[in-house]
């Protein structure tokens, strides 16, 4: 972390960048927030640890419009989102100085709570330098501990790898955290009968409170005004009158990000109701892989996506009835 802070100070001092986009220490041991820093003094509050799960790519849309360059800290998976945003002309590559930061797998306080650990007042093992296998918590109800990987975000269990796909320089080591198959959950659902599938999604989506956290955090959802925010549209973005509306919102969103979703996992991370939103997107990714050949959105900033590019080998519409 100190190396990052030193480098940030240097880049600010020599005028390479006008500001730094990273994370600022929170007031609890697990709640750092995305933040812009413009002075060495502010950087004293800079933090980078296991709880810095937030993907900063989307903030670069706003930062691209500011005067001067922004040093942005991107984890390996975040760098895919950044590439995708370049491809969609939403961020300006020239306005970014990308520091690829190492990643040991990111932690979720929700996962910690699911393990029955509550009242957390201090955590050890979450610092990058620790590379710890175990997390130890001081809580209001005594000392508790758990395996680092048990507190990891879902996306880290299916990590895309330690490589940054775009960067200006790299700082810090990364760890292989993958211990599950990316499409295993999707396959389980594919094996269900239509009635079971319906019941599954009905149950999950009925929890949705239409808060829009999933949409607003999503780097692929970068429309300046979402159709669901339109006052002329009969499905209201803030009402959850019936389960039809929730399904409509989620199905439309899933279609809209299909082929562009990098599987960054932010939607599932932020959902206050713990809805496994990644399952929708991963189903699309799996289908795209099967129909058009393996494709990873954001792997580079140039390749045309299979859904926005016509070739004679494309799947025919009859695929719908054949499958």
């Amino acid at each position: 972390m100190q190396e990052l802070i030193n480098r940030a100070k240097e880049l600010l001092a020599n005028g390479t960048v006008a500001r730094v986009l990273g994370w600022k220490a929170g007031d609890l041991p697990y709640n750092p927030e995305p933040a812009f820093f413009t002075t060495a003094e502010e950087l004293e509050n800079f933090v980078y640890n296991g709880f810095c799960g937030a993907n900063l790519s989307k903030y670069m849309i706003a930062a691209s419009k500011l005067e001067g360059k922004t040093m942005v800290c991107l984890k390996p998976c975040d760098s895919y989102s950044f590439n995708q945003l370049i491809k969609e002309h939403r961020v300006d590559r020239e306005k970014a100085y990308i520091v690829g930061v190492g990643c040991m797998g990111k932690l979720s306080i929700e996962k910690v709570k699911e393990l029955g650990i509550k009242g957390v007042t201090a955590v050890s093992g979450a610092e990058m330098a620790d590379g710890a296998e175990t997390l130890t918590f001081q809580t209001l109800y005594g000392e508790k501990s758990c395996a680092y990987s048990d507190a990891m975000l879902e996306r880290c269990h299916v990590c895309k790898g330690k490589e940054h796909v775009i960067y200006d320089e790299l700082i810090g080591e990364s760890k292989d955290t993958k211990d599950a198959e990316r499409f295993a959950e999707v396959e389980k659902i594919e094996a269900m009968s239509p009635a079971e599938k319906f019941a599954f999604f009905q149950k999950e989506l009925s929890k949705c409170i239409r808060c829009n956290a999933c949409r607003n955090v999503c780097p692929a959802c970068s429309c300046r005004k979402c159709v669901f925010d339109s006052t002329k549209f009969d499905s209201d973005q803030k009402a959850n009158v019936d389960s039809f509306e929730e399904k409509m919102f989620h199905v439309i969103r899933a279609f809209h990000v299909a082929g562009r979703c990098t599987d960054c996992g932010e939607c599932s991370r932020v959902c206050p109701q713990g809805i496994p939103l990644h399952l929708f997107n991963r189903k699309f990714i799996k289908d795209i892989n099967e129909l058009y050949g393996d494709f990873q959105a954001g792997a580079d900033a140039e390749t045309k996506g299979p859904l926005t590019n016509f070739t004679f080998d494309d799947a025919e519409p009859s695929i719908v009835t054949n499958r």
Binding site: P34, A35, I209, R210, C211, A213, V217, D236, V241, V270
Partner: peptide
């Protein structure tokens, strides 16, 4: 405000947020 995503989660989970909208459904 800068990190705020404008998602509204804070207002929807809050016991005291009281603002409402009135709309017509055709």
């Amino acid at each position: 405000y800068k990190p705020c995503l404008a998602c509204g989660t804070c207002t929807f989970v809050c016991p005291t947020c009281q603002c409402y909208d009135i709309k017509d459904y055709d």
